[in-house]
């Protein structure tokens, strides 16, 4: 359980924690779209991205998300960085420009653009991770399922409680993650004591070890689900009947403030995009590398 630290709910009482999960989900989507909107000129895009990045840093500080966790999760991205760089270096560049050549590998010319492109993608990925982290660290998983249920509630027109059933399924799945992790550890210990080695041997031997873990785990999970459904039924659960609610979601003044700010940022970026506004034209590329701008 301890290695699942990424995006774990952190019980603080900050402004962001107090926001309505429905609002947070919507704001997350708006921010994600903003990140992937690209304004025409490189320089404008860079400034916008930097602005969003600073905004996210501020949000992280505000919601007391640990930066250590962020760095930990980023440390796994090295592979992706190298992979992207290789792709951009060796895929023929449609905007080939001899002035952008950075260096040669043998007789192969490597463009600066490869670095900008992969750097930009990585940067956006980092921001995506930051956004999801802020969401999951400040929102209880259960509140998220309530939010999803709320967004799906228009499905009521099908006279089948789709939203409720989906939310209930999700919440039970979330509720049983720690229980099943404990179970996994127990089975691993039991199988190790019978001579299964999960860490050594070739690939086939390891897969064999995994089978010895997964099959008992499934058997136990199915047994649990049977008992769980019994317990739910015995307590009078009926998804088709009218049920009252213990948890209710409240949209407060905080949500209004947060939502309007995010909407304003999103609207601003969208307007720039639509009107092709290159509000600033500094040739960063020329400035940094002495090469002429690409776009």
């Amino acid at each position: 359980m301890n290695n699942l630290t990424f995006g774990r709910y952190a019980p603080f009482n900050t402004f962001v924690h107090k926001l309505d999960p429905r609002n947070k989900l919507l704001m997350m989507i708006l921010l994600l779209v903003s990140i992937f909107l690209k304004v025409d000129s490189w320089s404008s895009t860079l400034i916008l991205t930097a602005f969003l990045f600073l905004l996210l840093i501020a949000a992280m500080i505000m919601s007391r998300v640990s930066f250590l966790q962020l760095f930990k999760s980023l440390s796994m991205m090295w592979f992706l960085v190298i992979f992207l760089l290789l792709i951009y270096i060796f895929i023929p560049n449609p905007n080939y420009n001899p002035e952008h050549i950075a260096f040669y590998i043998g007789s192969y010319a490597v463009n600066y653009d490869a670095f900008y492109q992969s750097g930009y993608i990585i940067f956006r990925l980092i921001m995506m991770i930051m956004i999801t982290m802020i969401l999951t660290a400040t929102t209880k998983p259960m509140d998220l399922t309530y939010a999803i249920e709320w967004y799906l509630s228009p499905l009521k027109i099908f006279k089948y409680p789709v939203a409720h059933i989906l939310a209930m399924t999700l919440s039970i799945a979330l509720r049983f993650i720690p229980t099943l992790l404990d179970e996994t550890q127990r089975i691993m210990k039991a199988q190790s004591s019978r001579g299964v080695d999960f860490n050594k041997g070739g690939i086939f031997k390891r897969i064999g070890g995994l089978v010895a873990l997964i099959i008992p785990l499934f058997v136990s999970a199915i047994g649990r689900s049977e008992e769980l459904s019994n317990a739910m039924e015995a307590r009078g659960y009926n998804p088709y009947a009218k049920r009252s609610r213990y948890r209710i979601l409240k949209f407060s003044w905080r949500d209004l403030i947060a939502f309007i700010s995010i909407l304003a940022i999103f609207g601003g970026i969208l307007t720039l995009k639509i009107y092709d506004a290159n509000f600033i034209k500094i040739d960063f590329i020329y400035w940094i590398f002495g090469a002429k701008p690409l776009f």
Binding site: M232, R235, N238, S244
Partner: peptide, 15 residues
């Protein structure tokens, strides 16, 4: 069934 103790006790009542 509930995520927390209070949710679990409330589950029977919700039903």
């Amino acid at each position: 069934i509930g995520a927390t103790v209070e949710d679990d006790i409330a589950f029977s009542l919700e039903n």
